[in-house]
Amino acid sequence: MTDAPDLTPEQDAVRRLLADARHDAPTPPEVVAHLDATLASLVADRGEAPAASDAPSRPAPVADLAARRRRMAGIGLLAAAAVVVAGVAIGQGLPRMSSDDSAAGSAADGDMSTSQERDFGSQEDSGGADSGGAESESGAAEMGPESLKSTAPSPGAAYPTLSTADADLDQQLLGLRSDAGARRNPLASPSQPDAFCMLGIGPGRRLAAEIDGQPGVVVYSPRSGDAQEVALFVCGDGEPVRTLFLPLP
């Protein structure tokens, strides 16, 4: 069933011990009940979505349902907001291009995108994500193959594209961390992504990004201890869709 080439006797013995320790019992009833309740909530939430978008002027209800409805109703508004942010990002990108002595002329875009691809390739070689099928199983595939890869914001790009299911997400966020810092000046006020996203998220460096095919923000929290928390928010939802911890540089 499994591939077991050339295992030492010790490793083979460990394999057998692990196989013997396999968990064969069914999911505990209390866990099943909890999952069913969560699923029912998700289904109900999904059913409410059209009604929320049909009646945007209805007063916002309290509790987390409000956040969920805002998320659905805000998608239309965010599409327009994305245009504004794209303009800002392009605006900030232009000075960076001109200040980069090594980048010359119209070939700069192509060169950078090539080097980005090379960088991602090297990450994969060093134990990162597999190509092809692995990526196909994660993230926002409905947005097309390009959306499955995190792309560092090239000068002409509005913002990077991230997939929360990408196993290499931490590496990608590491690569974007310095960029978030670099972008801090043009977007100096952290409130700008907030305004874009209508989120009341906490402090930290923010980076506008497309997350699972939706407009969002990556928040690099202030560093504490030996790790830095990074949260990915989809615009309109106050709860992060994914939270990771990155090592400090």
Binding site: L18, A21, D130, A134
Partner: peptide, 23 residues
Amino acid sequence: VDMEGYPVAEVAVMLGCAEGTVK
């Protein structure tokens, strides 16, 4: 791989890494 008995190739897809990395 060892407990659940999935093939390395399938686990590579599950974990989003190369087969060599899984091994």
